[in-house]
Design a protein around this nucleic acid. Structure first.
Lengths: 196, 196
DNA sequence: GAAGAATGTTGGACTTGATTCAAATTTGTC
DNA sequence: GACAAATTTGAATCAAGTCCAACATTCTTC
């Protein structure tokens, strides 16, 4: 029995549960420390059993860091939106900037959490890696064979540019400042480091 | 009562225990999977209690990944060895190449383990970050104030270059091939990505 | 070299994240 | 309403990591 959203009850409930768990977790962790909040508490607060929680998230960190179910599709459309004839480097910049924009809302909270909890900071890197994997696959089609090193390096360097901007950025600066920093970094990395 | 090594008995025993634990762990993990080897087994094989094991290593991953006690000092001397007037980029390349050379022996085993065990692969990144932190501190002195963005970006890009080489490298290729790849990556990243 | 201080080691109890599984519940379909 | 498929659940279990008080070893001092 489908409704206006085009989803069955089952699917809608699933999304609601996902949201309930994430919301409960963020609310609890916002007050106390990440490590001080137990899975039982989160499950309790989300009105779900601990077992179910693991049906939705692979780990405690994932509850905070996992992209929303819609996000990956969004990323792909970001990549597909890039014109064929655009420079690899220009595409990479555009995709990265678009990428962080997809969760500009969560970004401030997440960065704050990460500065406090090393556990979270560590597994964030794992997440960046997941995005990078998608990027790589996407690049693989565009890159002429024989340029694997160049393509891989470009992807990683773009990641470094973005990471640099993110590191230097403070949540208090506001989101636009992050974009500005990112653009600066991409420009500089694009120029290279050999010349003074 | 000091001996020829200049270390007291206490210090010597400590190093021996550290080595015993790492050796036991690597030996066990070399046969079975990382996750299939329990801390109890490692402690047992190293002839030490589980509690003691945690006196030496902060986590299970650390047993495999921690740098040898001497290593950090080695890194610092690598950095200090760079001539004052060398380009930042050239210094970064030299330090990175020297860095991986310090554990060229472990490198093959470690990379093999990492391809099998995601757990290990994840926490490797955390280790790279530690080295990067040291680098940053070192750079901070050299970089003229006002160029924080540039310095941070250079460090991260150098890391990206090294990571790219490492990713594309296969343990079967031998260590020299890794060096070769690294040089190529540094050269390309140094040139930048704006020009075709 | 004996006594005492400092440093390490140990076992055991405990917390918590994560896995497994069969029974119970809910949703979709005819 | 009845049956099949997908979800949820509690309970049992495992392993990583922490804490702590008792014990052992090394270092220092006289």
């Amino acid at each position: 029995m489908a409704n206006e959203t085009g989803m069955g009850l089952r699917e809608r409930k699933k999304l609601a549960t996902w949201q309930a768990i994430r919301d409960a977790a963020l609310r609890l962790i916002d007050r106390r420390d990440f490590d001080a909040v137990s899975l039982d508490e989160i499950a309790e607060a989300a009105g779900v059993s601990r077992t179910t929680l693991f049906n939705y998230f692979a780990s405690k960190e994932a509850i905070v860091l996992d992209p929303a179910p819609q996000d990956p599709q969004l990323w792909r459309s970001l990549m597909d939106a890039r014109p064929e004839r655009e420079t690899l480097w220009a595409s990479l910049q555009a995709v990265h900037l678009g990428y962080v924009s997809t969760f500009s809302d969560r970004l401030v909270l997440q960065k704050r959490l990460k500065t406090v909890s090393p556990t979270l900071a560590a597994s964030t890197r794992e997440h960046a890696a997941r995005f990078k994997r998608e990027l790589r696959d996407w690049i693989a089609d565009r890159a002429p064979s024989g340029s694997e090193v160049y393509a891989e390096l470009a992807v990683n360097t773009a990641g470094a540019a973005m990471a640099t901007a993110y590191t230097l950025w403070s949540p208090d600066d506001g989101f636009d400042r992050l974009m500005e920093l990112a653009r600066t970094c991409f420009e500089q990395a694009g120029r290279g480091f050999t010349a003074p």
